[in-house]
């Protein structure tokens, strides 16, 4: 029968080994050779767009790469789906955008800010999501 000492060893060794493997896999998967995000194409404008995305907690309603609020549409391939002009109109609107009855906060962004957001969405749209981008509908054009 298992003793308390053996149970403690199971906990300590099991934790240490899995933690080391986890760190190893993290280093491996985030290495340059494994990059699926086109990190060299991450422009200053796209970085400013990400900052706006965070600052306004867009994730509180929308989802991006499947992560977020489940209340407003997924935006992973929104540029491909809607085009720059539509996105900029939604972001620059001084009144709540509500094409389907569900209201969005009126961010009243400047044109420069809206451009940064579009650049951010473009960068996200080119990330390889291991097939999720072809399943999540109606995002991918080739799926429609």
């Amino acid at each position: 029968m298992l003793s308390k000492k053996q149970a403690r060893a199971f906990f300590l060794v099991g934790t240490a080994v899995t933690f080391l493997i986890f760190i190893g896999l993290t280093v491996y998967s985030l290495g340059e050779a494994q990059d699926q995000t086109n990190r060299d194409q991450l422009s200053e404008s796209a970085i400013r767009g990400k900052w706006l995305w965070d600052k306004n907690n867009c994730m509180g309603c929308h989802t991006l790469m499947g992560e977020g609020g489940y209340y407003a549409p997924e935006l992973t391939k929104v540029v491909e789906r809607r085009g720059d002009a539509y996105i900029k109109a939604a972001l620059m609107s001084p009144v709540p955008w509500q094409p389907n009855g569900r209201k969005m906060v009126a961010y009243n962004m400047s044109e420069a800010e809206a451009n940064d957001m579009v650049e951010f969405f473009k960068w996200i749209g080119n990330v390889d999501l291991n097939g999720f981008e072809t399943i999540v509908s109606p995002l991918a054009k080739k799926n429609n």
Binding site: L2, S3, K4, A7, R8, F10, F11, G14, T15, T18, F19, I21, F22, L25, Y28, S29, L30, Q34, Q36, T37, M65, G66, E67, V127, D128, L129, N130, G131, F132
Partner: peptide, 30 residues
């Protein structure tokens, strides 16, 4: 004694189980 076994199982599965959040966010298929 059983507490050790349970928390051992928790970490054994839970640490690498973090991977289920990494399936579709733009990192390696591993």
């Amino acid at each position: 004694k059983w507490l050790y076994v349970i928390v051992g199982l928790t970490f054994l599965s839970g640490i690498l189980g973090t991977g289920h959040h990494y399936y579709y966010i733009g990192v390696n298929k591993i």
